[in-house]
Design a protein around this nucleic acid. Structure first.
Lengths: 208, 208
DNA sequence: GAGCAGGCTAAGCGCTCGCTCAGGTTCGGC
DNA sequence: GCCGAACCTGAGCGAGCGCTTAGCCTGCTC
């Protein structure tokens, strides 16, 4: 699969399943605003304005501003989990699957940086129930990566002292990309993905 | 140097240089509130309340709420830079200095998680001038780590394909600790520091 | 072509925000 | 014992917030 759908204009194509059209435009506007300013610094008037509507139109499609963040978080985490699941369950050695997981996960964080920032850093702005639901998805993401590492340890491909700690370090490497990646910077999402995949294989002691 | 000054009750001792006493109490209260809720979700009434004062007292010591964040960011980044500088300029091989830099930097992010969260994740809430000033400090932090890695490459200790990219990955590993570390979790700051230092040495291809 | 449901806006409500200001208290210097 | 400076509070201002409501279009049904 190409990364085109996650970059530039295509970044927002992942929201195609959201209907009707007005609800999707509001959601996309909210993603952009939350990514730029953060949830609490974003006003409902700003979101509606970006979608070309009046502030009141927002409340026809969503009950509250928080519901927008909740839906964005759920869809985003579902996408992240899908990326990791596909990599974890494909054919191949643990080394190949880990490299695939890291490179595609990093590509998503870099190319879809706008979405990824909201998904990874605005979790605490959700209420307790919504946060608990999203945290469950996040633990599943961790579990997919940990599973690959455990496979590699079991098969003798990897040399890892602390599987849980190393898993967290791998996730850190991927997630933090959303914090620093800049589309005007020296790297493409593909290049960062390849670099980080190489670094992760070194971390787990995989043979080159 | 022990890590005691960065943990538990001692976390806030780094603000000893802030005077007078009331100004320091307000600053510490702001650090706690910003770390818990984020800058925009924190009210001046909350900060003043935590410091045991009326909302108006805040404006005797600080011109605006943003000035509080600015001062916190500057002091925090200065501390981070000092930690990295000490490790980078001590005696020893590049391997020893990199391990020292990572373990002490990670210890600071884990033990002083409250401060580190504000310092690393609330940067965008600053105005343009203040942000530019803080970004300069951040680039100096990167440069210290990059310097150690370049030394290791030059001496033949390290095997690194992309020095800039690897530096960013090392910083990611350290900084992201502030996002996930939990004082009630299974690790102490020292343990995370040692684990991440080991992983970083693997990333740069240092001999065990 | 009247009725009606869904989608939208203009106007604005109640509230809390960052911040201000007049005035009170405390305390060292003389 | 009085003065001025430093510090702090109670009260509250103007603004902007999330969200609501009354009513107007538009297009589909029969």
């Amino acid at each position: 699969m190409s990364t085109a759908e996650e970059t530039a204009d295509g970044e927002m194509s992942a929201w195609g399943e959201v209907t009707p059209d007005a609800a999707r435009r509001l959601l996309v506007a909210a993603v952009e605003a939350f990514a730029e300013r953060g949830y609490h610094a974003t006003t409902t008037r700003d979101i509606a304005g970006r979608a070309g509507m009046s502030p009141a139109a927002l409340y026809i499609h969503y009950k509250t501003k928080e519901e927008l963040l909740h839906r964005i978080s759920r869809i985003g985490h579902a996408k992240a989990l899908e990326i990791l699941r596909v990599a974890a369950r494909r054919e191949g050695t643990a080394t190949e699957r880990l490299a695939d997981a890291v490179s595609s996960f990093v590509r998503w964080h870099a190319g879809g940086r706008t979405t990824a920032r909201v998904v990874q850093y605005e979790l605490d702005s959700l209420g307790p129930d919504a946060r608990a639901e999203i945290l469950a998805l996040r633990r599943q993401c961790d579990a997919e990566v940990r599973g690959i590492i455990e496979d590699g340890v079991a098969s003798g491909e990897f040399d890892v002292l602390d599987v849980r700690g190393t898993t967290l370090a791998v996730m850190s490497l991927c997630i933090d990309v959303a914090r620093w990646f800049n589309v005007d910077g020296p790297w493409t999402p593909d290049e960062v993905g390849a670099l980080d995949a190489d670094l992760v294989l070194r971390m787990v002691g995989a043979a080159k």
